[in-house]
Amino acid sequence: MVKAGNACLLKLEGVSKTYRGGSTKAVDSLSLEVRPGEIFGFLGPNGAGKTTTIKMIVGLLMPDNGRIIVDGHDIVKDPVSAKMRMGFVPDDPNLYNRLTGLEYLNLVADIYGVSAAERTRRINDLLSMFDLTSEVKDLIQSYSHGMKQKLALTGALLHNPPLFILDEPMVGLDPRSSRLFKDLMRSHCDQGYAVFFSTHILEVAERLCDRVGIIDKGKLIACGSMDELRKLSNETDESLEDIFLELTLPEEAD
């Protein structure tokens, strides 16, 4: 089990990414921090750069510029240590269809070096929580989208990572699992860990997140708690939806 040891679990410093051959920056000089105990919501319109940012954080893409530090470890210079400190679930978790759920979880546990006793406890607890116990010996190809999502979440939480990275985690979850998962995110952060997730469901972000970052056209245009965002818009009772729509208004509508 890896313990969080830094004041900042995720730090992005001037991160930029231009896709090869592209002229516009998918992510442009992005800087932000996620602190221990914090649920950080990452919002933005379609194509704003959310998934590109997340892919860079988890090492699926290399940033052109800037640094990404995960619990004190640079994802480019020391990727293995950085990845040991996080768990990741993509927006469309394509898992190995020809493995059983249990085989998949065992593979993840082996990679993260989770002891037999610890994995037994964690897997059973998580499977029970997500109501997957009876299906876990089936091939993943027989799972519904939601079940795959739950299995991916279970795998990502197996080693109790200090930083939990999620791309659209609520998509595909049934209401009960969604509620359980939100509780889990909170209890994860109560241990001093952090959650960084992207979502389009603004109500969830508003209720759940300690801080929110809004990205548009690759740039971070707002970042802070709900109160801080409201101050930005000079309205005290505005919802996150109002703030989001106001900040990400298309140029021609100005």
């Binding site: 546990a109 989770v114 037999a116 994995r119 037994t120 010996k137």
Partner: peptide, 21 residues
Amino acid sequence: APTSRRGALVDKQGRHGFSKR
């Protein structure tokens, strides 16, 4: 897809057991 139940250890409480590689 087949839904055969196979491959893992289950204790008396129906909990799965694991070994480490």
